[in-house]
Design a binder for these strands. Structure first.
Lengths: 231, 231
DNA sequence: AATCGACATAAAGATTTTATTAAGATTCAT
DNA sequence: ATGAATCTTAATAAAATCTTTATGTCGATT
């Protein structure tokens, strides 16, 4: 069983410490940020399984940060807040938060709500192994095979491939991919993405001049898809 | 847009009435049960999109009913309860509830939490599709099909098609289209638009000399519409 | 039938976007 | 600290798309 990683974004040291201890003693890995900027960076770099986000941060308004995260982050976000006014709660939930807890919160309830949020997710991502023709991806082992031979991928290449594969059949825009893999500050580095796509194709495609898996949508982005043989 | 159906299971008449009115006035369909047995039956027969379940029912304990429902019901269940003790909350969430609200609850918050729960569900289904005869547009995947074959459209062609489709049956003037797709500085390039319309027709129409989807409104603009076969 | 205006279409050239390579910078493990 | 792996940047060739131009069609009007 792989431990879920939870990103804590909260500026109060005491609370952050409390959260880290409670979560770690319940089998989660944690990573913490004490302001919004750092939170965004860590979310992009660590790809946490859930984010605990305090609404009252010093640098970025919590609702704004929530929206920024939701531009690409699809896993659960649980809000924490000293404010219990309905307007804030409703706004946060409508901005894409999965849950909203008012401080002071009870640890047991928080943990239960985290379990609930993660459960909903894992039900859907249930797939541990993905197979397309000669390509096989074992998500739990983090391994990729081509014709039963292990393909050696760097961590970035692997993230990119799984992002594409998890959205099979869907066009992902350059922006979306860059946000999801490299974080918001890379949103305009399209050329950069191309280099990695070329790299990936060289490793997983039979003929990288006629890609069968990773298709280009010119001017828009890329799409992972199985092409019928007839072409 | 299809209305979501919400099943309310609560024994207090006043609360049930309140819920029905709030939900209906917010565009949901509702069906109500005043005890656990009836709730189970209605859940099975109506397949609601979400269940609001009061924990204090006369015939069956709420936690037990929750577990019984979760044996087969996979959509969101939101618990309502007068009890705010942590043990009850934790137990309900661990038994598969998606959320837990303590009475008296604020209507706005309840509605926001319902929206949040339903959104999580539909995120996974990710399906926004439009279909006209042999033409199918999957907006979330950004793909267009003609007789189940993917039609390769450039980014501009796709924007143009979706603009027309989203205004199905309505005449869009040249100016309006040029402004919407290419921006104000192209407002007079009518000829330009014709080139793209021709291109689109070639790709999506069966016989581009007798367009069935994209109709010309001479001197005015274009209109997307299904024409009957008889012509 | 000839003329006109609005529209359709094809094709050539211009521009943008993409693929690919390679070299330098950085990171990582030992 | 060192070498290997990986990331990042830059340059260039190839491909796709856009834009313009030219020409042809259709229907209404004279």
């Amino acid at each position: 069983m792989i431990k879920d990683l939870i990103l804590i974004i909260d500026d109060e040291n005491a609370i952050r410490r409390l959260l880290e201890i409670s979560l770690q003693s319940n089998g989660y890995k944690t990573v913490s940020a004490c302001n919004g900027k750092e939170g965004l960076l860590l979310a992009a770099s660590h790809q946490p399984d859930l984010i605990l986000l305090d609404i009252g941060l010093p640098d970025i308004n919590g609702q704004v940060l929530l929206k920024r995260l939701r531009e690409w982050y699809v896993k659960p976000i649980v809000m924490l807040s000293a404010q219990s006014d309905e307007e804030n709660i409703v706004q946060a939930l409508d901005n894409g938060a999965n849950d909203y807890l008012c401080k002071p919160f009870r640890t047991g309830e928080l943990l239960a709500r985290i379990r609930s949020s993660l459960r909903n997710l894992s039900d859907n991502n249930h797939q541990q192994k993905i197979e397309f023709d000669s390509l096989r991806i074992d998500l739990s082992a983090r391994l990729v095979y081509k014709h039963n031979n292990i393909v050696k991928l760097t961590s970035t290449e692997y993230s990119l491939l799984t992002l594409l594969v998890k959205n099979e059949g869907r066009v992902l825009t350059h922006q979306y991919i860059l946000n999801a893999i490299w974080g918001p500050s890379y949103a305009l580095q399209t050329q950069y993405l191309r280099v990695f796509i070329a790299q990936l194709r060289k490793k997983i495609e039979k003929d990288s001049n006629h890609p069968k898996f990773i298709l280009t949508e010119s001017g828009v982005g890329y799409r992972f898809m199985i092409q019928s043989e007839s072409l």
